[in-house]
Design a protein around this nucleic acid. Structure first.
Lengths: 125, 125
DNA sequence: CCGTATCCCCCCAGATACTG
DNA sequence: CAGTATCTGGGGGGATACGG
């Protein structure tokens, strides 16, 4: 028996394994999607390369974000035992399968950003 | 001259009007997407109907979320001056144009939820 | 019925300093 | 280079009580 989307939404959050919430929370993560986007269109990036590609992210949050993405199997982490150490991050196939949807959102954002900003400005509480 | 996605991402967040961040932050909002989803497939819902449809949301956060969505022009708010008051919320055309993308994410989530949960369980910090 | 107003706590993110 | 460790504050969000 498949649970419907409505049932998932109406359920208490603790009832867990709601796919919408658990995954949307990750998409909604302030940094996670940005990391996925910078890893798109490249083979792999080193820690500091990702860091420089994303303005405003702290080292700590980048570490946390990368670990989470790795735990979810969306990003791979490859260590080359050298001195100095070299670590490369790349999208996994699973991560790559998510990116079209993110790009869909990005495109939508670009198309509607102006009118949304206009709406916000015109909106009086 | 169009700014590239990479330039947007590399820019400091303060540099603002980055479409990705400003809209993704809304998508990422813990409750906003859930509200949009429950308003899909219906004409309109009253405040308490939305409230009951989303498990775990507090009255305060629902109010805030609805206001934000209204300010962005994604949701419309219609008041019927009666006693007791009647207020209905519905998707605007703009909001409706966003929903396919959200559904795309939902579908992706459903397809990959199991393997993601498995990855998380298998992941040792 | 549909909210607002207020209080207050917790936790997350930023800053900073340090290590293999 | 690629991170950890520790501290700290600011604000998001829950609970509660009240208003039109």
């Amino acid at each position: 028996m498949e649970k419907s989307l409505k049932e998932y939404l109406a359920a208490e959050p603790g009832t867990m394994d709601c796919p919408v919430r658990s995954v949307l929370d990750r998409i909604g993560d302030k940094w996670a999607t940005l990391v996925l986007l910078v890893l798109d269109d490249v083979d792999a990036l080193r820690f500091n390369e990702v860091h420089k590609a994303i303005g405003g992210i702290s080292q700590k949050m980048l570490t946390v974000t990368l670990k989470t993405l790795e735990a979810d199997g969306l990003v791979s982490r490859t260590m080359y035992p050298q001195i100095p150490p070299r670590v490369e991050y790349a999208l996994t196939p699973r991560g790559r399968s998510l990116l079209p949807h993110i790009h869909g959102l990005v495109e939508w954002s670009k198309e509607h950003m102006r009118e949304i900003l206009a709406s916000r400005a015109a909106y009086v509480a």
